[in-house]
Computed example of a mutant assay.
Amino acid sequence: MNSAIVESFAQMVREKNVDKDVLAGIIEEIFGVMVKKKYGQEANFDVIANMDKGDIEIFLERTIVDEVEDPETEISIAEVEKKGNEEELEVGDDYVEKLELSSFGRRLINLARQNLNQRIREIEKELVYNEYSEMVGEIIVGDIYQVRRNDILVNHNRHELLLPRSEQIPRERYRKGDTIRAVIKEVKQTPNGPVIIISRSDNLFLRKLFEIEIPEIYDGIIEIKRIAREPSERAKIAVESQDPRIDAVGACVGMKGVRIHAIVRELNNENIDVINYSDDPIVLIQRSLAPAKLKQIELDETEKRCNVLADSDQVSLIVGRNGVNIRLAMKLTGYEIDVIREEKPYEE
């Protein structure tokens, strides 16, 4: 019976990836509770779980007395004789008895099994929480196994990850069975276990894609300084090279745009503008509004506002479709941008 119980517990170790020593400690604790229920809270005992041999041994130690006053810690010499006093123990000696699991009855054994299952589930939740907490900010590849109204469930290494609607790329279509890439954004601890939130719309996802596709960024030669993004529409990313021999924008775009196109495809054809970063806010504003040509930039660094003067035919380029270009420029630079239109003189 002992080996069957330990084998069932060992199977949990293999399935749940629980450390054997941790499991042995839990078994000892749970069977210790069983001993206390049967023999009393003051009982002196040892539980030894050998996971390799598949055995659980329980030893109960009591003091031999003439008349028992405390049955939890004492045993009469008469009872010791009945059990076969092979070591010829006397009154005052300690009597160590090996308890058989069958002596606890089926009800206590089943209770121990239920308690162990509960503890295993708690440990598994803790392991999952710790594993994915360390992976926050990393990109994972999983399989979509359920598409729901407000979120998508993704299978990753037999664990459930959640892609909420707010973290999805708008207008992107998801189908059951599709392989999907996303960044682990957050891991929440809840009463029902950890909830692992992944994202495709977060700026961090774009940053990590650049690190994967562009070795110079991964190696630290090129640094991503700022990112502004409206998922499915457009993104602006400011980069700076730590090596004067390397063109940051050129390295990010790649030969014939091969590097940037790989990222664009992953983001459902989201347009990406890569610009050179500058500590000078006027230069950064000018670059972030390209390809529009600006005539003048008036800056208020205290209020973080700026007025941009441009010819009327450049305003549409500055603002962009549905205002996305100027909104991203404001996010990237941190300045509120007002556009002042200057009409060109009429030429006869």
Score class of each variant (00 low, 15 high):
residue 8 S to Y: 12
residue 13 V to N: 12
residue 15 E to Q: 12
residue 20 K to V: 14
residue 21 D to N: 13
residue 23 L to G: 06
residue 27 I to Y: 02
residue 28 E to K: 07
residue 30 I to E: 15
residue 41 Q to H: 06
residue 44 N to G: 00
residue 46 D to N: 13
residue 50 N to K: 07
residue 55 D to M: 13
residue 60 L to Y: 13
residue 66 D to E: 12
residue 67 E to M: 06
residue 67 E to S: 11
residue 70 D to S: 10
residue 86 E to L: 12
residue 87 E to I: 00
residue 92 G to I: 03
residue 117 N to T: 13
residue 118 Q to N: 14
residue 119 R to Q: 15
residue 120 I to E: 05
residue 121 R to Q: 15
residue 122 E to S: 11
residue 127 L to R: 10
residue 144 I to D: 08
residue 155 N to P: 01
residue 160 E to R: 05
residue 187 V to P: 11
residue 194 P to Y: 05
residue 199 S to R: 02
residue 199 S to C: 07
residue 201 S to W: 08
residue 209 L to C: 09
residue 212 I to S: 12
residue 215 P to H: 07
residue 217 I to S: 10
residue 219 D to I: 05
residue 227 I to F: 12
residue 235 A to C: 12
residue 243 D to M: 07
residue 247 D to C: 03
residue 249 V to D: 02
residue 250 G to R: 00
residue 253 V to G: 03
residue 254 G to S: 08
residue 256 K to E: 12
residue 262 A to S: 15
residue 269 N to Q: 11
residue 270 E to P: 11
residue 291 P to K: 01
residue 295 K to T: 07
residue 298 E to T: 08
residue 306 C to T: 11
residue 307 N to H: 07
residue 308 V to A: 07
residue 316 S to R: 11
residue 317 L to G: 01
residue 320 G to M: 06
residue 325 N to H: 12
residue 326 I to C: 04
residue 328 L to G: 08
residue 332 L to D: 09
residue 334 G to Q: 05
residue 335 Y to N: 04
residue 335 Y to Q: 02
residue 336 E to I: 08
residue 341 R to D: 15
residue 347 E to S: 11
